[in-house]
Structures are given as structure tokens and as C-alpha cells.
Design a protein around this nucleic acid. Structure first.
Lengths: 174, 174
DNA sequence: CATCAATCGTTTAACATCAAACTATCTATA
DNA sequence: TATAGATAGTTTGATGTTAAACGATTGATG
């Protein structure tokens, strides 16, 4: 009963690697979101606030692309942020399909206060690994990332430079 | 604008490790759940079906402990499994608070068919890493697992044996 | 100019998730 | 025995998530 799998060792290895990957991600995520609780925001909300803070006002479509979330999801999370007075929707005049999301002063204040604290929490969580272990973990995880190394999105049409793949922005979510 | 963080390199390293950990877990999870879609079940449902298949009938509390989910969540997922005729609730006679969850023949048939296919999918996903990379990933992820190595739950009171920590069961979820 | 296709955001339905309040049941103990 | 506390499961309310259908707006093309 406690064996649970009668496959070859290669299968066991893959299953174990996957299970521990999932558990680690979930564990860290859960502990970090407890930290965010103290500031009254969720992980999803942090993602949006951080993007707005670092990149400036964006339309919902762009936020969805950046955070890898569906349009409907972005609508919902922004609804909640708006209820709390942290962002506001501004309908574009030139293209009335588009709505730019702006941080309110309250939202800007909050995110600029929370971000360093959250980063500190992340550092604390990851400090269970040494520096080189963190780099190794990153390297291994990258190989498991988005299917087939797509990267077919130049964000805002800077198609003249075939630059450095972007790959990482050192944001504190996702 | 593209720098996004003006912290020391240790902070950057931790943030990058964390981001890539989350993304890897999410990516793999998303691709695997597309595979489960073909069998009409979700990841959560798979977790419960698999536990029942490997461990036999269990009460909801035990399932929640095993899968690290809240009681309310278990109730909901089992509701859906029951709707689909894959499990059934059996009220205990000796202790009427308790409800044992059983696989139906249909549920047993489904999970015994799906499990090997799902395992194969996991192997395929993880094959982006070599065998030793998988083992290294597992090792690193374990260090990030549940806070402080708690393990304060002997499941069903087998408190006489201080046995081998249990740690891993080679299941294909979680 | 009219229409059609693309794009943006919203809504809906289904599932997941948690915490907290609640019901039912059991156990210990006074 | 009666009552209080523990335990199992459900319900509720909030959030997040997707996919699909939908409405509004824009742009292109005949």
C-alpha cells in the first residue's frame, strides 16, 4: 500500500521531481501570501500593482499578457483593486475600446511601501538555499518554463532590436 | 524602466530564483491539466481519485490532510466527483460524524486508466531535465518545502513507531 | 459609405481555494 | 445524566482562474 507506483525508476524520478517542484512552489507562495495579508492585498493584486508601478499605466490587455492571465481575470482583479481605491480606470479618448489603468496616489503609496518588504520576505524564503543553489534552481526551472521557448511577443512593438530575449525582469511575482 | 529593482545582487538572485520556480511549476501544471482535460477531470479531482485508489476509502478530513487542502475545499471537489458518479459518500455507522469516500466502479476504472497516461505526461514534461538534474531539482525543492520541517501529524495515531518521516509517496499530484 | 473583421473589455458558468460560522455527532466529565 | 468541549462535514462569502459568449469600438475594404 505505501509503494504507490510500480513504474521504472525513471518514472519515479520524474514524478518525485515534479511533486517536489509543485510543493515547493506552493509552500513558498502560501507563506508569502500570508505576508501580503498584513497589507490587505493578494498575490494577484500585487502582480498588477507592481506592473503598474514599474511600467506605468497600462491597458488590461497588456496586463494580461504580462502576467499571463486571461482577460476576464484581469477585469475581476482590477475590479477589486478599484473597490479598494488603489487603481482607477481611465477610458482612452482616441480609442474608446481601451481603458488605461492608473495607480491612485493611495495605490502608489501602498505598493512602494509593500514592495521592499515583500522582497525581503522572498529573500528570507529563498535563504534556505545557498546563493549557488538559488542559481542552480533558477537554471533548472528555466528549462521547464513555457512550452518550446516561444517568446513571441515584443510587448510594445520594438521590433527593430532582436535584443536579449528579455526572459527576466526581476519582478517579485509570477 | 526595464531594470525594475535596485536591490543588492543577493536580493536579485532570490527574486529570480523564486520567479522561475513559480513559473516552472505553473507552466508544467498548466500543460498537465490540459492532458487531464481529455479525461474530463481536473487536477484537484485527480488528487482525490489517486489517493482513494492507492490508499482505499478515506474520510474527507484525511483527504484534506493528505492533499493539504481545507475541509470546505474537499467538500466541493467531492461534490463534483459525486455528480460525475466517480465516488460515493458512505456514512459510517459506528461514528455518524464520519463519511467514508469510496471509488465507484466507474471511478476506479477511470483512475486506473488515467494514472499511467498522466505519469507518462509527467515524465515527458520533466524530460527537459536530465536524470541527475531531476534529482538535483528535487533536492533543492525539498529544502523549500513545508515550513520548518513540521511533520506533526501521524495520520492515524500510529505513534509507536518514530518511522522514516514518510516524506514522499511517489504520487503524481501535489 | 457600408459592412466585416479585429480588438478591447465585460459577463457568465464552472471549478478551485480559504477562513469562518454553523450543524450534527461523539466523548469526557462533573 | 447533563453539559461542555472536541471532531466531521457543510455552508457562506470572498477571491482567483479559465473559456466562451457577448457588446462596443475601430479600421479596412469593397
Amino acid at each position: 500500500m505505501p509503494t504507490h507506483f510500480k513504474g521504472d525508476s525513471g518514472t519515479k524520478r520524474a514524478l518525485n521531481a515534479f511533486i517536489n517542484l509543485s510543493r515547493a512552489s506552493n509552500s513558498v507562495q502560501t507563506r508569502l501570501s500570508a505576508g501580503l495579508d498584513r497589507h490587505g492585498i493578494t498575490t494577484s493584486q500585487l502582480g498588477i500593482l507592481e506592473a503598474l508601478f514599474h511600467l506605468g499605466p497600462m491597458c488590461q490587455r497588456a496586463l494580461g499578457d504580462k502576467l499571463l492571465r486571461s482577460g476576464g481575470n484581469i477585469t475581476m482583479v482590477i475590479d477589486n483593486l478599484e473597490k479598494h481605491g488603489l487603481v482607477e480606470r481611465v477610458r482612452q479618448k482616441d480609442d474608446r475600446r481601451m481603458i488605461m489603468i492608473h495607480l491612485t496616489p493611495k495605490g502608489r503609496k501602498l505598493i512602494s511601501r509593500v514592495l521592499p518588504l515583500h522582497a525581503k520576505d522572498v529573500v528570507k524564503e529563498m535563504s534556505r538555499l545557498t546563493a549557488s543553489e538559488q542559481e542552480e534552481l533558477r537554471r533548472l526551472c528555466r528549462k521547464l518554463g513555457r512550452g518550446g521557448e516561444v517568446n513571441l511577443e515584443n510587448e510594445h512593438g520594438n521590433s527593430e532590436r532582436k535584443t536579449k530575449e528579455k526572459e527576466n525582469d526581476t519582478s517579485s511575482t509570477q
